[in-house]
Design a protein around this nucleic acid. Structure first.
Length: 478
DNA sequence: ATGTTC
């Protein structure tokens, strides 16, 4: 059991002990802390704090739970020259992320068409484990996807240039090197572009239920009653294979490290080593794959809306608000003790939250800050937030990524026995179509933390600010 | 998350 020291209402410290080079900082409320102290995630926060080059603190967001090596909901920045990079600090689903598109439609415009829309999305966008067949790629074209990300998708007719502008990093990490990913990863990736995947991945039709910040909402073109489309997916089998390959690769080279790993799952390499560079450049390929993947699916959804509702692109007005990644490591510059420092920020189940004025925030949002998309579970709300200066000062410009699990998949299956989850959702006005036999049980709302509490913590702590709340009305699950 | 154990 790891004990926490209270710093403020929403901020708790894991005191620096043993080999920890810095303390841990957990953003949470009192009731979350009680549950956290009983499980392994805090030990993982402490373990990360022992790694070389870690700057300031090992951070955890309120949706923290135990993951592979690093906790999910964790943020850790390592000095670019003296620090490490770790596949476990990124996660298996490299550049798993969420995007939100707004439309010109209001709920009343589609009230009688929700079932048609959900059915058409389910039919036109392959989903489920092992799903394939949305876009066919030659080996040569696949390498272009890995190098170009969203830009490749738009060039091939899947979307518009403004979609690229409204994607974190413009949907492309520039250092991607397709020649260093395995044949097996390439093989798995070739058939899966434009597919949703399974588990917590989804497509969701929503309605803007509440606006908290009218000025920022205006900049984001959000209004009450507006129909939205949210998409949660990642880099599919390709990213999984890259992660798997490099975990093995780093274990093989572990004896080159001159420090002790508290957990084998934290296998890593110095950022400046050959191994570290290789992982970083392979990870970038998977990041670009994921961006192209989400771009293609959003564009196909656009076409589904136009066909199903028999309306023009102009009347639909489906525009990408923003696309965020929540499993990634990035080279960024941050201010430490008044000085600029280049760091490798690992966000695993955490979202970038850059403030107004930051040079990486696209023109459309430069004056208000970066949009942040936070999905809840499929039975409750999702949120749009905006990045803040305080996030820059405290969390390397980072915030939470979602509700966070409270029940394991197995426990959720047990808890759902004798219940028809889809029916319970239907009674709440949410129509669901799903592929996997166990998906409804494993993803039931009871399996997740209360998203409103998670949002309260990040808003209360000031590491992002509430802009709007969305209510789901139609969901496609893998 | 994941052709859920090459």
């Amino acid at each position: 059991m790891t004990e926490l020291k209270k710093i403020s209402e929403y901020k708790w410290e894991v005191p620096q002990t043993g080999n920890m080079r810095v303390p841990g900082i957990v953003y949470a409320n009192k009731s979350m802390i009680k549950a956290l102290e009983k499980e392994g995630a805090l030990k993982q926060v402490a373990n990360v704090a022992t790694l070389p080059g870690i700057v300031r603190a090992s951070l955890a967001m309120p949706d923290i739970h135990q993951g592979y090596g690093f906790s999910i909901g964790g943020v850790a920045a390592f000095d670019w020259e003296t620090g490490v990079i770790s596949p476990g600090g990124v996660g298996y689903d490299i550049n798993c992320g969420v995007r939100l598109a707004t439309t010109h439609l209001e709920e009343k415009d589609i009230k009688t068409k929700v079932a048609d829309l959900v059915n058409a999305l389910y039919k036109n966008i392959p989903c489920g484990i092992g799903s394939k067949g949305s876009v066919k790629l030659s080996v040569k074209e696949e390498k272009k996807v890995l190098e170009q990300g969203s830009k490749w998708a738009v060039k091939e007719g899947f979307g518009e240039n403004s979609d690229v502008d409204h994607t974190e990093d413009y949907g492309c990490m520039p250092n991607a090197d397709p020649d260093i990913v395995s044949e097996r990863a390439l093989e798995r990736g070739r058939k899966q572009l434009g597919t949703l995947g399974s588990g917590n991945h989804f497509l969701e039709i929503g309605v803007v239920e509440e606006i908290y910040d009218p000025e920022v909402a205006r900049a984001f073109r959000l209004f009450e009653g507006q129909v939205t489309l949210m998409l949660h997916s990642g880099s599919r089998g390709f990213g999984y294979q890259v992660c798997d390959d490099f975990l093995a690769f780093m274990v093989k080279h572990a004896r080159k490290l001159d420090f002790e790993l508290p957990d084998r799952q934290l296998s890593c390499a110095m950022i400046q080593s050959e191994e570290g560079k290789r992982y970083f450049n392979a990870m970038a390929c998977a990041a670009n794959y994921a961006w192209a993947n989400r771009q293609i699916m959003m564009h196909k959804s656009r076409e589904v809306f136009m066909r199903t509702l028999e309306i023009s692109p102009r009347d639909l007005g489906m525009t990408l608000l923003y696309d965020v990644c929540h499993n990634i490591a990035k080279k960024e510059t941050h201010i430490t003790e008044g000085k600029k420092q280049v760091v490798c920020v690992h966000r695993k189940g955490a979202t970038r939250a850059f403030p107004a004025g930051h040079e990486t925030v696209c023109d459309a949002y430069r004056t208000v800050g970066q949009p942040i998309i936070i999905p809840g579970d499929m039975g409750t709300a999702s949120y749009v937030l905006v990045g803040t200066e305080k996030a820059m000062e405290e969390t390397f410009g980072s915030t939470c990524h979602g509700a966070g699990r409270v029940l394991s998949r197995k426990a959720a299956k047990k808890a759902s026995k004798g219940r028809a989850i889809y029916r319970e959702l239907e009674d709440k006005g949410i129509l669901v179509r799903w592929r996997g036999r166990n998906t409804m049980a494993e993803e039931m709302p009871d399996a997740y933390k209360d998203i409103s509490q998670v949002i309260d913590v990040v808003h209360g702590a000031g590491i992002s600010k509430k802009v709007a709340k969305l209510r789901p009305i139609g969901v496609v699950k893998g």
